[in-house]
Amino acid sequence: MSENYRNNFLKEVEERVEEGHWVKMCMQCGVCAGSCPLGPHWAHPPQEIFMMIRAGKREEVLTSDSMWMCTSCYNCVVRCPRKLPITHIMHGLANLAYRLGLSPKNQTTQKFASMFWNNLAQTGRVNELKLSLGMYFKDGFAQGIKNAMAMQSVGLGMVKAKRLNPMELFGGHGIKDKSGFHAMLKKAREIEDRRKNFA
């Protein structure tokens, strides 16, 4: 399926990326490039990514970890003279890269984003303790212990202030209509996959 897009990355972005149809509206003014809080860590700021898309640099864009540096701060969105929903295009590109298996390996924000989603998709609500433990142990057990030790003061403080419930590990928060919820998400995913040619 992806073969059809090889020669027209802009078309692929328009069809498969959230709000991707906006990319052609970019006038390369550069305003967004200076807006990202983690700016120095973006190999290619949004402006450059839009240029690369139009130049058909599919591999370079999708394998970049730039989009994963987006903090969803919406600085760019309120500043862009062409009103591009840049935040969502970055999320959409990251999602496409991830779905195609092209996103950089061991990208921590990608791991966290997946964990977050899987956590909520299971029970309908986020279980913060499982989420944070999952994150500490994503690099394996030894590194996990190290990470957990480093964050211990934070974690214990949160338990003492009654803002983290250790019992969450054994159940914790969740919604009642889990079967309806799961069916709903499954259906939404099916529709999206069909529309974006992932099916």
């Binding site: 935040t87 991830y98 779905r99 984003a113 939404a188």
Partner: peptide, 11 residues
């Protein structure tokens, strides 16, 4: 905002 990687758009 962070749900995007796994969740996509419509979900």
């Amino acid at each position: 905002s962070i749900g995007y990687a796994e969740g996509g758009e419509l979900p």
